[in-house]
Design a protein around this nucleic acid. Structure first.
Ligand code: FES
Ligand code: FES
Lengths: 145, 145
DNA sequence: TAATTAAAAGATGTTTTTGTCTTTTAATTT
DNA sequence: AAATTAAAAGACAAAAACATCTTTTAATTA
């Protein structure tokens, strides 16, 4: 088990892929995305439908259709993607599973978790989706395998 | 979804509870533990059986039996509990779900994840189970609700 | 406007996680 | 030794996560 759900992992990789692939215009189809990030095609389709509804990415049907990102969506924060898919429990929930995370009734690891959560949130909050395009273009980073 | 599985959350809370409850001798039964950490009794029983087999906690059957911790188990690191339950994927796996996390073929968030993972591991590695007893005794921290 | 394309939506299936209930085993006490 | 106690083990069930397949809808193109 990782920090994110499998769904969220696919979502992030797909969004990176779409951004990288369409930042200069054009569309990309579900087949190419799925194979580009090594994910099950139909499962990913569901995830992207959801992201599209939530305006994290754009999509258009028909010939020459597909998924893409425009200026607005390229500037979205990674935190928005995570929140859209996994909700905000990663940022606000108790690490030990107490119903509420609070200063009044903290679990033994509350302070430590607070720091870690803040760091995760910071990372996701401080980076836009487009920020990773360059490294992907240069082939420095990878989205599959 | 949190950082740990539900199973692991229960495991950590239970281990804290047992440590706190038996550091000065005695045993504690599954019913008391389950109600003390607000977890399903029989599900927790399975988890504790497993932890007992892996020498994270001790147990003994029969009248006056129950779960307890001795000097050796009290000194175990939290990381050992997590690893026993959730494995080490949290510490070594790719945050975006790539099959291998590596410097050679890194995902776009590799460096960020490396830092976060290290911090999580450090927290779990640097603290023994018994380290939390005092705060629990004082009622400063909580294991339920 | 008919054919085609590609995403959206719907239905269904599998696996994993989480949770419950019953029976068995190993200790203790009488 | 028999009764009692409490964990261990096994069987089963529900829910959530993950995945696949089919049908429908909205565009484009011929
Ligand atoms: S109460 Fe557990 S992380 Fe805040
Ligand atoms: S490759 Fe993704 S975290 Fe290292």
């Amino acid at each position: 088990m990782g920090i994110f759900s499998k769904t969220c992992e696919y979502a992030i990789r797909a969004v990176f892929f779409i951004a990288h692939r369409t930042a200069k215009g054009g569309r990309v189809g579900i087949k190419e995305i799925a194979s580009g990030i090594n994910s099950p095609e139909h499962f990913l389709a569901k995830i992207l439908q959801d992201l599209s509804r939530k305006n994290i990415i754009r999509s258009i049907k028909g010939p020459n259709g597909g998924f893409y990102m425009d200026d607005a969506t390229l500037k979205r924060r990674l935190s928005e993607v995570v929140e859209a898919v996994d909700g905000n429990s990663l940022f606000t929930g108790c690490g030990l599973g107490l119903v509420y995370c609070s200063e009044i009734n903290p679990c033994p690891l509350h302070n430590e978790f607070k720091g870690i959560r803040a760091r995760i949130y910071e990372m996701l909050q401080n980076t836009t989706i487009e920020a990773f395009n360059e490294d992907l273009n240069l082939g420095i980073t990878s989205l599959k395998k």
